[in-house]
């Protein structure tokens, strides 16, 4: 028995170490390569550490503000993801309140109808969504990425589910004291649903930041696009691996903001999914 546990323990360690190494090495490789010169990469090939550490790649990246304005792209991404996240939090909290704390005719029927429709494969609405964005005059503006995602039902479902765990007596006693819905929402419910809002906010932020297909479609103006769409252009700008360091440096710059967010909010990222699977399970 004792031996068995030991063997399985070493097997588990071995497996985890191999997987973590494979998972970490590409990012480290990207970082290291971004500090190597082109001649060094070409002549020396792959190395664990640069022969000479150089920062010219990053200087060049930052100086190229015409064909690859990466700081502009990063700023666009930050603006889009932040605005999107704030609006998501506002929309899902008031809508979740409506569907879980208020009484009106056909409430649950309405909710589950919308939820059912939202399961419809969204590839079908891709092309008309572009047309709608075009009609609204939002092509090549941040709104093209900020607003459409607010219509989703997934986060509202989570908030509604979370609110169901809050006793109704809280609302009722406040109502006896003459509090309006707005007051109950802002003073009682909102503080209590903070955990679920943080979780939904984090996932909205990273989801928006990493979205790829949609920005590739709605942005054609180099100065207006977010960094994910911009990186697609980089393959041509620094093309054919003539400027490897710049290519890697740009990829690393694009990763940094979400990584920072992860390290500051790590516990929420993990608790997040507990919440999610708690509901499903």
């Amino acid at each position: 028995m004792f031996e068995k546990i030991k063997v399985s323990k070493y097997l588990a360690y071995l497996f985890l170490i191999i997987v973590s190494a494979i998972w970490a090495i590409p990012v480290l490789f990207g970082i290291v390569t971004s500090f190597r010169s082109q001649t060094e990469v070409v002549n020396e090939g792959f190395r664990l550490l640069p022969v000479n550490w150089i920062v010219e790649n990053y200087v060049n990246i930052l100086e190229n503000t015409s064909t690859a304005p990466i700081m502009q792209w990063l700023w666009n991404s930050i603006f889009i993801a932040t605005m999107h996240t704030l609006l998501v939090v506002v929309v899902i909290s008031i809508t979740g309140y409506g569907y879980s704390r208020m009484k009106f005719k056909g409430r649950d029927l309405l909710f589950f109808t919308l939820l059912g429709i939202s399961f419809f494969p969204n590839v079908v609405n891709l092309i008309p969504s572009y047309k709608i964005i075009d009609i609204l005059g939002w092509v090549n503006t941040p709104w093209a990425m900020i607003v459409p995602g607010l219509a989703g039902m997934g986060n509202i479902f989570l908030v509604r589910q979370f609110m169901k765990g809050i006793p109704m007596e809280l609302d009722e006693s406040a109502r006896v004291d003459g509090a309006s819905d707005f007051k109950i929402f802002s003073r009682i419910i909102l503080p209590l649903i903070r955990p679920v809002l943080i979780v939904c906010g984090l996932f909205s932020f990273t989801g928006s930041w990493n979205d790829f297909l949609w920005p590739v479609i709605v942005y054609t103006d180099v100065n207006k696009m977010p960094v994910t769409a911009g990186l697609l252009l980089l393959q041509d700008v620094y093309g054919n691996y003539r400027m490897i360091g710049q290519l890697m440096g740009s990829a690393i710059l694009a990763i940094i903001p979400t990584l920072l967010l992860f390290f500051f909010a790590q516990k929420y990222f993990v608790s997040a999914i507990n919440l999610n699977s708690g509901i499903k399970g």
Partner: peptide
């Protein structure tokens, strides 16, 4: 620690990841 290392690539946007992996699989380099 293991979980963080394995989770992080999920936060890397797919286009940044593709640039790095393309180089990893590049013929000469």
């Amino acid at each position: 620690l293991f979980q963080t290392l394995i989770y992080i690539p999920g936060l890397v946007s797919i286009s940044a990841a593709a640039l790095i992996w393309s180089l990893i699989f590049n013929k000469q380099l």
